[in-house]
């Protein structure tokens, strides 16, 4: 397999995952804006959304003020924002076109028709409450793409590169969501947690579609300590660090088997996974949640670069 083909599969998958995450973040932002009770929170929460989407600075370079319409447009449609849903879908599709033959027909059709249908939607079509429906659609299309990949793609090198892209992106996304709101998750907050905090906690869980699964796992009200644990260490939570690294590990293992060599990235990912397995929330909070999250984001990025290097992405 060409290094460029591997790179395209990796980035195609990453950008589809990112499109889905941006849609999810936008949906949470939209919900918050509909909740009048939290007063001055409005503006700040759209700001948090931008930070979680790694788009605050690019946004502020273009817009003086943070308004819901402008933020939504920036996150969904802005061609100049490389992480807007539109740009993500376009980048994913360009990568897919370049390696069209490494994809199954189902995968290509899922991605191509998503892109074509998306480009037919104008921001002005989404007034009067149509936004959630549209965001749902984006998530469904991402699920369709992943489903096509899981259901039809040969389990060879290509599959593993697709998996690596998806889970590195997902781990990064979960870490960013946590880091934006890490302060509402500090244990000191628990005793004083009022309605506003409960709302913030729910917001975090919603951004990773986990507000209901939380109840199943913890059978308890929202507690910041549990929420952090859920998204970082629990292996049954499909967007947690631990879960993502389980899959990253498996794909690097699969690649090592196919290629008959064990690259550096495999050792690096094993080290991260083993740290996550051995970690406890006690230690994480003691050494600082924010510090832990920042370090994880960096390690995750480094692994991505290492993979690109090991497999000759160019």
């Amino acid at each position: 397999m060409l290094g460029r083909t591997a790179a395209s599969l990796f980035w195609m998958s990453r950008y589809i995952e990112r499109a889905e995450n941006i849609a999810r973040l936008t949906e949470v932002g939209y919900r918050i804006a509909l909740t009048p009770d939290i007063g001055s929170g409005h503006r700040e929460d759209w700001q948090s959304t931008l930070v979680a989407a790694a788009g605050l600075n690019p946004y502020l370079e273009r817009h003086a003020a943070i308004t819901p319409e402008k933020v939504q447009h920036f996150l969904l449609f802005d061609r100049d924002n490389p992480s807007s849903v539109r740009s993500c879908l376009e980048t994913a599709r360009n990568n897919a076109r370049a390696v069209r033959t490494a994809l199954t027909r189902e995968m290509w059709e899922a991605l191509n028709s998503t892109y074509i249908d998306f480009t037919a939607v104008k921001a002005s079509d989404l007034g009067s409450g149509k936004l959630p429906e549209f965001l749902d659609w984006v998530r469904q299309r991402s699920a369709l793409f992943r489903g096509s990949m899981l259901g039809t793609l040969l389990r060879d090198e290509g599959f593993h590169f697709g998996q690596l892209g998806a889970f590195i992106e997902r781990a990064d996304n979960t870490a960013r969501i946590l880091d934006v709101k890490y302060y509402v998750l500090l244990p000191t907050n628990e005793s004083v947690g009022g309605d506003l905090d409960a709302f913030q906690w729910e917001t975090i869980l919603r951004s990773v579609s986990a507000h209901r699964s939380y109840r199943h796992v913890y059978k308890d009200r929202y507690r910041p300590w549990n929420i952090a644990e859920f998204l970082i260490l629990r292996q049954e939570m499909p967007r947690s660090f631990r879960f993502c690294y389980g899959w990253i590990e498996r794909s690097l293992e699969g690649l090592s088997e196919i290629l008959g060599q064990s690259p550096q990235s495999r050792h690096d990912s094993s080290a991260i996974l083993s740290d996550l397995k051995n970690a406890s929330m006690d230690e994480i909070f003691q050494s600082g949640l924010h510090e832990f999250l920042s370090a994880f984001i960096k390690r995750n990025n480094d692994l991505s670069s290492r993979i690109a290097h090991d497999f000759h992405f160019l």
Binding site: M1, L2, G3, R4, L255, F311, H312, L314
Partner: peptide, 10 residues
């Protein structure tokens, strides 16, 4: 003296 393509193994 040969043409190569860059692959994931080299």
């Amino acid at each position: 003296g040969a043409l190569y393509m860059r692959t994931i193994t080299g």
